[in-house]
Nucleic acid binder design. Structure first.
Length: 478
DNA sequence: ATGTCC
């Protein structure tokens, strides 16, 4: 089962066959995703045949779209119609380079060649994404890249530190579990209905009336208000340890029960991201390698609309966290000593070297001087409450977590549920839901990641997860 | 990330 013949085909395999670096690659790889019956070697032979004589495949069940692509080259973007990239990428600072995969570097280099790019930086948890790498920070001049923000617009962390001692966790274990079950909702497409729908002033925001596209998303946004979604999103109880008094937060030294949430703008943000990246690709034709970095002029109508929709998605994501925290705080009957929240998929107007720029942070934590942020580790490793140091070379940013060590598919194939359960048990972690692809061992060592960003943030307090709820994803069956 | 291709 595990021989080389079953390995996926990538763009480089096709380029080696003589395939052009244009949309043809995308069409060819999409066909390979549905590969049935053929081994990798056989498939590559087919690809070579289609390249040399596409007419023979125009009625082929599998290869028709590819053959059509070759024959009907008219649909492909002509080189003279594309916006040229600069020949050399601008320099960018990289933190923890030894821990970053090549694909993320390559993507960042392409972003640094865009004509709109002013500056960039790569955070130590960086990995390959769609367009801009996750962990990539990019400052541009009056232009916004929808996929420089990411699909989950406004995705963020929110932390409530309670006036409850660490002992509350063991003493009220069953009750805490019940609170998580009753007040959170996970899973793609899932939300709240009827009497369970949440209320929040965000639903009265005039930005929902911007245009008919955004207006049409309002009902679904309302039903998903206060839900968490899937993937790496979570709602968890843990212990927050302050080794010394924090005057700014007004928290005395000690260990407290805390609630940490990670989620974004759900279907609303995803639909906005998809819609506006399509519009961007229509008006901003970039060479194949850069096509997912298509941007909108901030002064254009589409650019203005995206900016409004992005900000609404950010406020909506914030409202979702607020609903979750309010429900759980009420159920606990506790007092909140301090609340901290930060986005890590967003774009801001900021000043860089005395110039107004648009700073895209795609999986990066804002870390201007004195700004608080939360950088989670994994279920079995601590997360950190941090205070930004305002490092301009990092464009006032830091990592948004530990970063993945293992791909989702690799995790599902190679990890056994028994092993994961034992591992969680050894660390005293209670996990409700969660798939193999989110097991703690798929993440990098957070301590190494923090070491690589000592110039970017100071650690204020440490959060140790205890009880975690995530989406079920069907990958748990052994 | 998202009911994962309009």
């Amino acid at each position: 089962m595990n021989n080389i013949n079953n390995k996926p085909i990538n763009g480089n395999d096709l380029i080696a066959l003589g395939y052009p670096e244009n949309e043809i690659l995308g069409i060819a790889l999409k066909i390979n995703k549905k590969r049935t019956g053929y081994t990798k070697v056989e498939m590559l032979e087919k690809y070579a045949e289609v390249l040399s004589s596409p007419n023979d495949f125009i009625n082929d069940k599998i290869f028709k779209p590819l053959a059509k692509g070759f024959i009907d080259g008219i649909h492909l973007t002509k080189e003279e119609e594309t916006i040229p990239l600069n020949e050399d990428p601008k320099d960018f600072e990289v933190y923890g380079a030894d821990k970053i995969e090549d694909g993320a570097f390559e993507q960042m280099k392409v972003a640094m060649k865009l004509p709109i790019t002013i500056a960039g930086a790569l955070m130590p948890d960086a990995h390959q994404g769609y367009g801009l790498p996750i962990g990539g920070v990019l400052a541009t001049k009056n232009a916004i890249i929808p996929y420089g923000v990411g699909v989950d617009i406004g995705c963020r962390m929110a932390l409530s530190v309670y006036d409850l001692p660490a002992s509350h966790y063991i003493e009220h274990y069953d009750s805490l579990k019940d609170i998580l079950m009753k007040n959170t909702k996970f899973g793609a497409g899932h939300g709240f209905h009827g009497q369970y729908k949440a209320e929040h002033r965000i639903m009265d925001d005039a930005k929902f009336e911007t245009n008919s596209f955004i207006k049409n998303l309002k009902d679904k946004a309302w039903s998903q208000l206060g839900s968490s979604g899937g993937g790496n999103h979570f709602v968890e109880f843990g212990l927050m340890e302050f080794e010394k008094d924090d005057k700014a937060l007004n928290i005395p030294k000690g260990t407290y029960l805390a609630l940490l949430t990670h989620s974004g703008s759900r279907g609303f943000g995803a639909t906005v991201a998809d819609h506006y990246t399509r519009l961007a690709k229509d008006v901003c034709k970039l060479p194949y390698k850069a096509k997912n970095l298509a941007y909108l002029d901030l002064d254009s109508e589409e650019g203005q609309e995206y900016w409004i929709a992005m900000n609404l998605a950010g406020e909506y994501a914030s409202a979702c966290h607020e609903v979750i925290h309010q429900k759980i705080t009420f159920a606990l009957g506790a007092e909140v000593l301090s609340k901290v929240e930060n986005h890590h998929n967003f774009a801001w107007k900021e000043t860089y070297e005395n110039e107004e720029v648009i700073v895209h942070r795609k999986g990066a934590t804002p870390a201007s001087k004195g700004v608080m942020g939360i950088i989670p580790g994994s279920m079995t490793a601590p997360g950190f409450l941090v205070r930004g140091k305002g490092e301009e070379n990092a464009i006032n940013s830091a990592s948004h977590g530990a970063g993945r060590l293992m791909s989702r598919t690799q995790a599902i194939k190679s990890l056994s549920q028994n092993k994961i359960n034992t591992y969680l048990n050894d660390f005293g972690i209670t996990l409700i839901g969660g798939g193999k692809d989110e097991a703690p061992m798929v993440y990098k060592d957070i301590h190494a990641v923090m070491d690589a960003q000592q110039d970017l943030v100071d650690v204020v307090a440490t959060f140790t997860p205890k009880m975690v709820r995530m989406a079920d994803d069907g990958s748990r069956e052994d």
